[in-house]
């Protein structure tokens, strides 16, 4: 069984109010390391056996069609070892 991870992040130019809220909450707890925070989504997809090239292409397509909105988000697909 293999695990495919799809990370979806808002494009850099899109305002991320949730990330900003996290960034401003950190110093209140004494964590002063963060210059900025961006919040995204992670999808973990399990498939039977090792992924074929065709399956990875299909997952890319699904990521582009459903898992992310290309108008505001970028995504990265990777196979987790």
């Amino acid at each position: 069984m293999a695990k495919i991870v799809v990370d979806v992040m808002l494009k850099p130019e899109i305002l991320d109010p949730q990330g900003n809220a996290v960034a401003s909450a950190l110093p209140r707890l004494g964590f002063n390391f963060a210059k900025s925070v961006r919040q995204g989504k992670r999808f973990e997809i399990e498939i039977e056996g090792e992924p074929t090239t065709a399956q990875l292409a299909e997952i890319e397509k699904a990521a582009e069609t459903l898992l992310s909105n290309p108008v505001i988000e970028n995504f990265v697909v990777r196979v987790e070892k």
């Binding site: 808002l10 899109i14 305002l15 109010p17 949730q18 809220a21 909105n69 108008v71 505001i72």
Partner: peptide, 11 residues
């Protein structure tokens, strides 16, 4: 329609 609707800026 073009564009997208995202979280209100003040959350």
């Amino acid at each position: 329609l073009p564009g997208a609707l995202t979280r209100n800026s003040d959350l």
